[in-house]
Every structure is written in C-alpha cells, then in structure tokens.
Design a protein around this nucleic acid. Sequence first.
DNA 1: GCGCTCTACTAGCGCGCTCTAGTGATGAGA
DNA 2: TCTCATCACTAGAGCGCGCTAGTAGAGCGC
Lengths: 363, 363
Amino acid sequence: MPEPQGDTPGGPPRRGDRRPTMTDVAQRAGVSRALVSLVFRDAPGASTATRERVFRVAEEIGYRPDSAARMLASSRSKVLGVLLTVRNPFHADMVESIYPVAEERGYEILLSAASPTRDERKAVDALLGHRCEGLLLLGPTLPTSYIAELGRKLPVVSLGRHFRGIDVDSVHTAEAKGVRQAIAHLVELGHRSIAHIDGGRGPGSAERRKAYRAAMRKHGLDDYIRVLPGDQTEESGSAMANVLLAERSAMPTAVLAGNDRCALGFLDVVWRAGLSVPGDLSVVGYDDSHLAHLSHIDLSTVRQDPDRHAELAVRCVVDRLDGTRDQAAEFVLEPKLVTRGTTGPPGRSGIMRFASGGDGVET
Amino acid sequence: MPEPQGDTPGGPPRRGDRRPTMTDVAQRAGVSRALVSLVFRDAPGASTATRERVFRVAEEIGYRPDSAARMLASSRSKVLGVLLTVRNPFHADMVESIYPVAEERGYEILLSAASPTRDERKAVDALLGHRCEGLLLLGPTLPTSYIAELGRKLPVVSLGRHFRGIDVDSVHTAEAKGVRQAIAHLVELGHRSIAHIDGGRGPGSAERRKAYRAAMRKHGLDDYIRVLPGDQTEESGSAMANVLLAERSAMPTAVLAGNDRCALGFLDVVWRAGLSVPGDLSVVGYDDSHLAHLSHIDLSTVRQDPDRHAELAVRCVVDRLDGTRDQAAEFVLEPKLVTRGTTGPPGRSGIMRFASGGDGVET
DNA sequence: GCGCTCTACTAGCGCGCTCTAGTGATGAGA
DNA sequence: TCTCATCACTAGAGCGCGCTAGTAGAGCGC
C-alpha cells in the first residue's frame, strides 16, 4: 500500500513525488475517474459509501484538485480577480471582507496588487491571464475607456469609483452625503474656514470635491472655500500641511482630507509643528480604515462599510455571471460620519500659538 | 445543444466574443498553432518576420495566453505563491519588492491573504490549488510540522522566521543584532528600565525575546528585565501600554516593541494618557515598515530591508526549482537601527508628570 | 416477455496550451 | 550523386480535469 505502481519504473523513491491526480485516486479507490470527479464537484450520482471512500483515499494520498485543469475543462473558472493597492488600508479591510462572501457564493479569489512600480493595467493583465470570470477593482484609477473595454470582456465591478455611461457596475458611498455630514459637523462646532485636501484622480475625489464646494456654499461659507491639491497618500497630506503652515495668517481652522491616509500624513506635520488637534485645527478623514481606529490617531472620519461593499460587489459580479442581470448597476451606500478625537470647536489661539512657536523651534 | 462549434454552447454567460485562443491567432496569421506557441514562449525556431506577424495578429484580436492552460501543459507553471497578512504594512512593503524581482526571473506572483477569518492553511491551500511551483511565506505562524510537510512537496521559503532542522529555506534578519543595537542605543541614552513587548508566536519573536534578555544582562540590567505579552498587533501594543500606565510607580523609561504595529498601538495610548515621547518614555519599533516613516509617528525602529528580503527569497525558490541547490539555506540579513523621534534621554519627571495628570483628566 | 424509471456508475471528448518528434527545403561538404 | 546540418515550420500526443452521453442492473407494472 505504500507503493503506488508505475511512478518511477525501477527507480528509487523520488524526491518531490509527482502530484497525485484524479486518476490516482480513482485507481486506488477502485472506481472510474469520472466518479471521483463527481464526488469532488459534489454532484449527485454517487452513493454515500463510495463518496466517503473516495474522500478517504484522496486524503491518504494527498490529492488536491488542480484548479488550472479545472478551469480549463469547465467553462466556469469560479475565480474572481481583485485588483488592489497593497498599501491602502481600506483595501486591506475590503479584501478581508471579500474572501468570506466569495467563498459563500462558491468563488475563489485571486489577488493582484498595483504599486508604484506595477501599474494597474499590469495587475489586471495578470488577473485576466488567470481566467478570472469577473473583476473587482478596488478604487481603480484606470481611464474610463479602459474600464469600459474590460467591461465588454467580462463582468467588472468598481468599488469606490463610479463610471458614467459604460456597462460596468459600481459600489460606492454617497460621497456627497458623507462630505455634507462632515462639513455640517465642523460648521456646527463653529468652524468657518474649512479647507479640503483633494484626492486627485483617486476614487470619489471628484465627487467629494464638488460636494465640498456645494456644502460650503450651502452654509454661506463661499469665501472660505479652499481646495488643496493632493493624491490620497500620506505624503500629499503632509505636503499640504506644510503649505498651510507656511502661510500662517490664512490658516483654516479645519481640514477635510481626501482619505484617511492623507489625513494621517497631514496630522503628522501639524502635530510636529506644535499645533494641537483639535485645539488649533480639526481634521476629518475619509474611509474609516482600521488605521483611523487606532487610538493614538483616533481620527474623525467618514465611514464606508467594507463588509457591505464586499457583499454588494461580489453579488454584482455573480449576478452578472448567472445572467440574473445584464445591465449596469450602481449601488450607493450611505456613509456615516464617525466623530472621534480629531474634531472639536475651533480654538481662537490657533494662529497665535503657531506664530509664537515658529516652526516648532524656539527662538 | 446541437451546436458543437457554436458561439454559445450553453456554457458560461458570455459577454461579447469568445476569448481568442492560440488557434485563432494561428489561423489568422496563416501558420500552425505550434508556431504561435513558439513565438509566445520566445523559443527559437521562428523567423523574425513570422514572429512579428504573429504578435501583430495577436494584438489585433486581443489574444492573451491562458495561464491555466499553460500551467497544465507545461510541467513548469512559472508561478510563485505568496502568503501574506493583508494588514501587515511590512508585508505590503515586501510584496511590492517581490513583484519586480519575480518578473525579472520570469515568474508570476499569486497572492493569498491570511486574515482573522481566513487562516494561513486555507490561504496556502488556495496557492497550492493554483499550481504554484514555490511558496514565499511572509512571517508565517504555521506550526513547524506543517511547514516541513509543505517543504517536502515544493520549494518553500519563509521570510522573517527561521525553522530549524527542516528542509525549508529562510530569509530573516539577525534578530539578536537588531535587538542589541536597540538596547545599546537606549542604554547609551541613559535608560536602565527597558521593557520588551513580546511578539507572541509572530516571526522572530522568540529570538528577539531571547536577545532582549541577553542584551539586558550584558549591560548589567538583569533586574530591569521585563517581557510583556503581545502579538505584533496595534491592539497588543495599546493593551500593554494600559498595563504599564496602570502601574504608575514601576513604569519603565523605554520600551522595545515586538514590531512597528505594536509600537504604534503603544504610542497611541501613551500619547493620549498625556505622556510625552521621548520625554517620558522612549519607544523603539521593529521592521521599519512605511508606517514608521510617517513623520507624525517618526518611529525609531530596526530596519529590515524589504527589497533585499524579496531578492533573496525569490532567488532561494528559483535556485531550488532550477536544481542549483538542494539543501536548506538560511539567509541572515543585517538589521540596522534607525533612530528617529521616539527615542531620547529618559526624563526624570516621567512618573511624576503622569501622577499629577491622572488618566489625562484634570482633577 | 415488454417498456419504463431510477440509481450508480463509466467512456471518452475536448478545454488551450506545451513540447517531442517529426517534415520539407536549402545549402555545404564528400 | 549522396550524406548531413540547419532552418522554419507542423502534426499530434498529452497535461488534469469537467461533462455529456451512455450502460448495467434493479425494480415495477402489465
């Protein structure tokens, strides 16, 4: 029984044995290959006794279905590709939520990371090469035309960014609502000069920027509208903080950052410059990624529910694959402002304190 | 369905055209399938003219080699699997470094994430199912026996954790050296009471713990040795900070955290309790993940070079696959202490200040 | 005996590709 | 003329599996 025949004719036991196949299981269990296939697909047509025997034998010889062969043989690969930015903590949260949902629906997940040295196209190419049936794009920054082209090939859902006029689903939060809540909160606390650090080409940025302007106008704060360029990274947050600090006189009392990462970078510089938050400056993020929860950061932010995003996104793609739906869907989730420790009433000493402290160096 | 060659043989829901195959390219280019295969594998035996024509046609019809079929047909899948913890910023750094190195060697990367709801075994299973030829395990917490078993099936390299006595390669830093540097730095600054927050079962933790004890003894600080339980998450950092704060009288003046994440959680609580860092308490992390660079954190930490880790790990696996080496290798990298803003001379007022400030609430 | 259904199983094609073993065609060397 | 080599290319056998179409046998009614 420890001698499966035919492996290495006349040779010694070989290092790194050939991976067992369905045929091996079938032979050893004394059934046909097709029967083993049935059992592993959990399809009807095998007796309970046989089923158990097959599983037992498979376990014994360490058989594991080969998903490459599976995909090849079946038209359905049952694989969904996920494009993410590996450093983005909100993406991390979503990936964690996606796995269980996909599994429940009977799909596997393939991850492909975009990074500064590996652009999103390349990452998507890898996914396509692996026969993904559908794609979940986490905050894609790809051009609309490219996304549209993808959408023609297979079901695609974009998380966090909506594409108008193309046949691609999207799941995102009502950016405008989140921004309105944040601005209303700040105004209520007494802020008037509220700046916004833009998210650049990042997902939702355009909507947030627009909503920021609208909300400010609604509160009669037209004169205080100020959009600072950024790109949803810590670096852009700290850069904009430096810009503001250099101005001294015109500093706003509150800042709505493009996302949590940006808010973190911003806070960094502000803290080190000796300003207190929220005493001198209130800061609001966007995402409620797990970083925002960290108590030494304790960031007020706009919550986007990753579980719900994942749930809907997977459902989007699966519905398309099942043919349940054949036109683009847009799911808009309700955002929710989470007020934590980085927002408070404006201190009247903000600029004063800063002016006396210089760049944090005593004179 | 009576349409064997048909467009839609009742298979998967199709959007647009059937995915083009090698046969389509061959027909359109007026050559054999085999020739197209040659061209795409960059194998010799095709004229430059034909080669160009094939590529042009492929481009035209949007052909993309199917890696499932490729893997199946070739014994070499040219795919390396990477196990990571999606929230770990140091893992993110390494993934970014792994992609280009693997590509250079002609390998694709498949990512599989472990998370609280998806354990490492499951993540590894997915990778194996996808025919990975080798595995890069980022800070695995799997039991040695399991890793050993994996190592018998395929080349495996463990990053950040070394397994003794089994046929598995590893790449990690000289933990002891990093710890010694950190302790020496703190001692030099004048600290005596230096505590260590343990990394639990995390990679390198045992070595760091041991090295911490040794280093303390070396400096004659036996009486100040103190290891606090932890697990390399922000949460454990903040929990231990609370433990220390509750003690008041016996608080150490410096803390060496199990990793950067732990240090961050720790700082959080300490800052919010009104202590100043490094005035009242110095903190050193471990990893030098990109979080440590953030200027508002500005964490003194022990640098582990992710690029170098990636380079060596990929080389490990590739060498094994090429048969260049057939016994376990261990690469030990030199760590380097990076002193930033969280370490400084011990303030003699640490406990006093805390005692007067209570829990951060004025009385 | 017939036809029918149901369960439990098997035969064998083909998914898209790689790769070995070829086939001509051309040219050099004897 | 006949090798022998080299080049550019092709035929066709699988890789491990899914899946359709089938079979064998039992049961059941007439």
